[in-house]
Design a protein around this nucleic acid. Structure first.
Lengths: 358, 358
DNA sequence: CTGTTAGCGCGTTCAC
DNA sequence: GTGAACGCGCTAACAG
């Protein structure tokens, strides 16, 4: 913190300054600050010769551009805010990766936050993000507090909601119907002859995607005339593998004749299957289990787990791409919904032949 | 974008403005902008009465503080930069969560980037981060390009390197010796009577923690007089479960009498065990397997996996805490190393009794 | 407790 | 292709 040197010695030596400004670099090179500024932009009109000299000086002096100053002046922060429920869930981290990849070489940086599945925390985070003046914002899901919605609308930036199909979208949507996806899984398994369906999910209040999957399950089971599904809830998200194990135990105690159990997530399905194995039950011989999300584990474990494959990475990538479109077309783009695909992946854990090792 | 109203109508109506400034809020309330600014800070001396009026106006108008302007003026960005190799690895996302939690209520926000295990990408990211003028930066590992090191030193902000013990730390370190941790695992298993050790890891160039684990393994196996370890490499990081399965097949083809296989990560260990199961081998009856990292899966799967438990969350939390200390004590804190704990967790996958189901 | 003045380090805008 | 003046929205520093 102390200046050991003669404070009047203002000469600039390479490797000297800690907090260098553009003006100082400009003086060193013998141009104006504006020219240095231009040298940093792709398109700007600076002679190759001048740019080269400037960049050499930048290197020699170790100057680093100050974007916070630049964005104040240009009124473009260079940020895109993104909120996901949990960073520890590989489905969402795949989505975050998709967003980051889509933002590559756009000069935009992702400002990532996680809401812990809480609408209140989401509201706080939205406010914190908006204070950084992001040029767009990507949210997970369509449930937000009234104040959050107000802030988002007022911010006047493009908003993309993902992973669901909100009834009343703020702006753009990139996602799929969790309810229909689960419904498809129920129908597929019913088509294979399963009749007695159980369901394992979290308490619904916080995880809106989870509750959509649950209602898709219930609705479909009833539509198929298979009576009310056998539902077991474990605690609040994030979903753990262990909860799946505990839940299937409860479920089988209560309804021992259950044929197939659908889980809100592959993670709980895996926990359930392992617990069954540990208790000497064979999956799918004694009970079939399916998950949701097609996590890596489901194609590796034994037995491999039937699930719904969701395009997590694509959701992120497309959400960012939609945002970029809107930004480039001058925010005039109409609100629109981009549907992302999902598909049933049938694997050993629901195999009717009960021959887990193929 | 168009202004439908009379542009001369400058009266401020609640819920009107998109881009409101502090000065406008101040005018609305009848105070100076500075007083509004003070009302937003915790410590600042503003009468409760005035603050209340200001905050009501802020609410009514929907004003959102502009931190980018504030940080230019205060010369404090409010950012902490953090770089992790991969966001899809739950060990690192636990670390990120630890950092975020430690930064709670400090007014500092995490700017997260992932390097994809590449020093070049890390260098790029460091530059991109420094352009935002972070007040501190947290890195994973101690291997950086020369230019990255130069930029970091020159930035004059506290740097914390994590997850390893670099030979030549830049500043502070929060981590543990990956080599010694792996060594401890080898010794523990050798103590149980295992003699023929195999090792499965990635190609070493990019993943420095992986190569430290590998060398800890090799060194220790030789020290114990158990000859050179049987090493199999799979591709570049990130580590997948599938690679573990492929690797153990190669390893057993080449050295069929291997008794125990140590893996660079629980993820490859899990893949290896599942592949063995699929091929009709029992773990640990036919071969014992251990991992590294104590991922959730290892305590759930069947058989449960012996591993090294690492305090991932604590690494993040302490790294951020050290940074905060340094920031508060005026950056005068000496460089120091904070060791984080690790411990061997013995589970079924290396049980000498070979009774996987307890 | 509150107001005034003067920048923070850039980019915009308009000259040349 | 380059430069000068000005201002982005806020806060530090000082005054009262």
């Amino acid at each position: 913190m102390k200046n050991e040197d003669d404070p009047k010695d203002k000469r600039l030596k390479p490797g000297d300054a800690q907090k260098l400004t553009m003006a100082e670099v400009a003086k060193y090179v013998g141009v104006s600050a504006m020219t240095v500024s231009r040298a940093f932009r792709q398109d700007a009109s600076v002679s190759e010769e001048t740019r080269k000299r400037i960049m050499e000086a930048v290197d020699a002096l170790g100057y680093v551009l100050d974007l916070s100053a630049g964005s104040l002046s240009s009124r473009r922060s260079g940020f895109i805010a993104a909120l996901v429920p949990s960073i520890n869930n590989s489905n969402f981290s795949d989505t975050a990766r998709g967003m980051t990849d889509a933002l590559q070489n756009t000069g935009l940086q992702l400002l990532l936050g996680y809401t812990d599945y809480s609408a209140e925390k989401e509201e706080e985070l939205i406010e914190a993000m908006l204070r950084r003046r992001p040029e767009g914002i990507i949210l997970t899901g369509g449930s937000h507090t009234a104040r959050a919605r107000r802030m988002l609308v007022k911010a006047g930036i493009p908003v993309v909601e993902t992973w669901e199909l909100p009834e009343d979208p703020i702006n753009q949507v990139v996602g799929f119907s969790n309810s229909e996806a689960m419904s498809l899984l129920v129908r597929t398994l019913a088509g294979q002859g399963y009749r007695k369906f159980g369901y394992i999910g979290g308490t619904t209040a916080r995880d809106t995607r989870g509750s959509q999957r649950r209602s898709g399950f219930q609705k479909t089971v009833e539509e198929l005339g298979l009576g009310p599904g056998r539902m077991i809830s474990f605690g609040v998200p994030p979903i753990t593998m262990e909860q799946g194990g505990q839940a299937i135990v409860s479920l089988l105690e209560r309804w021992p004749d259950t044929e197939v159990v659908l889980c809100v997530s592959d993670l709980s399905a895996f926990g359930a299957i392992m617990e069954c194995t540990r208790r000497g039950m064979k999956v799918p011989r004694d009970i079939a289990v399916a998950g949701f999300g097609d996590y890596e584990i489901s194609s590796i474990c034994h037995p491999r787990i039937t699930t719904i494959n969701v395009d997590c990475y694509g959701i992120g990538r497309q959400a960012a791409a939609r945002l970029l479109d809107t930004l480039h077309t001058g925010e005039a783009t109409g609100d629109e919904i981009t549907l992302t695909g999902y598909k049933v992946v049938l694997r050993e854990s629901t195999d009717r032949n009960g021959a887990p090792t193929a």
